[in-house]
Write a protein that binds this DNA or RNA. Structure first.
Lengths: 196, 196
DNA sequence: TGTCAAAGTGAGAAGTTCTAACATATGTTA
DNA sequence: TAACATATGTTAGAACTTCTCACTTTGACA
């Protein structure tokens, strides 16, 4: 069970993912180094390569784990409101933005420009899943039984907005441009304009 | 005039900025290395440090230059439409998205998560300038003579949307989610919804 | 119990950023 | 116009990266 100085770690893979996540938040994804993660996990710098192909795979693992959490958060935020109510759209948006602000490192890792290096099909798939959640809510709000072209269009517009808002608030913080506005009001306002 | 093997380069600073810009587009900002830029410019790896404090300053220089170009593009796109017409808002948006798609590397460098490392006041200032252009157009469209709270609010919403749209299109390309939609239609649609 | 695969380690190759000491042009200024 | 100060290069190298290789340790199971 890995007392103190066990040669085998127990679950080094998970430990490295957590160390990576932590460092990505602390120092930012672009300053993250595998060696740092090793120091934090207390293993040699060669150890990660038994669990991950390379540095990128470590980062991908962190993003995948983060996306799963993100998706779970959105789904649970949803359930506080009755089926088909427009508040559910707002709730998704709130959760999306909250993730960007609470985990800026992971958010950036996913969306903010590592997509060239991190081009894993599982990431694409995860993104589609999240988008699907939104689409099905939009459909209900528009009184459609299936994902029509118009539903996709409105969903795409809403997604763009919330995505951009998340970046801006993550970068500048509410303090700068957003504090003057109430986040929930903004999201409600936009949802209404988009669903009308 | 730097014939062939002149010891002094002529304008190494500019040459390095261009080399950096080029490499950032080619390989992505996170894979950019100073050494690559040196090879491309044909100088030793120590040369850049006579012109830039460090790697970050090189990247900042590229972003500043890109932002100036971006701003100029937006202003010139604007002038194709009469003062106060809503098409001017759409034109700004088109230009914003076009920049993201034409220069994804620089766009990402500016917005996509290097803001921790690249926290230069000149960048913030440049961003405010661009936002100012949008705000003054929004004011005119709403028939306001000055930048009211409501103008800021609408401008902020529009900006968020276009910003998010740019990221999504840059990441996925029109091919994936956007091709089904006409970009100009989307922007026009949103502008109308937001200014109503 | 013995063997084998899994999961660690240390050493080191190749590449990175950046500094220090040195070399060479350029342009004032005596 | 010679000489010096300064700007702009270079080479060498220190300290760091990522990742590989050959090796060791350990747990599992035949």
């Amino acid at each position: 069970m890995a007392e103190k100085k066990a040669y085998h770690h127990g679950d080094l893979r998970a430990a490295l993912i957590e160390a990576t996540r932590q460092l990505v938040e602390e120092k930012g994804p672009d300053s993250f180094s595998v060696s740092d993660a090793c120091r934090l996990a207390g293993v040699s710098t060669a150890a990660p390569y038994k669990h991950f192909k390379d540095k990128n795979e470590m980062l991908v693992a962190v993003v995948l784990e983060g996306m799963a959490r993100h998706r779970a958060n959105m789904l649970s935020a949803l359930q506080e409101f009755p089926e088909g109510s427009p508040e559910r759209i707002t709730a998704i948006g709130m959760e999306y933005v909250a993730f960007a602000m609470n985990e800026p490192g992971v958010f950036r890792l996913k969306f903010g420009g590592f997509t060239d290096r991190i081009a894993d099909p599982r990431l694409e798939e995860g993104g589609q899943q999240s988008f699907g959640i939104l689409l099905s809510e939009v459909a209900k709000c528009l009184g459609e039984s299936r994902i029509t072209e118009e539903v996709r269009r409105r969903g795409f517009l809403l997604w763009s907005f919330v995505h951009g808002l998340s970046f801006i608030l993550r970068d500048r913080g509410l303090a700068d441009k957003g504090e003057e506005f109430d986040l929930h009001d903004l999201l409600k306002d936009v949802s209404e304009r988009m669903l009308k």
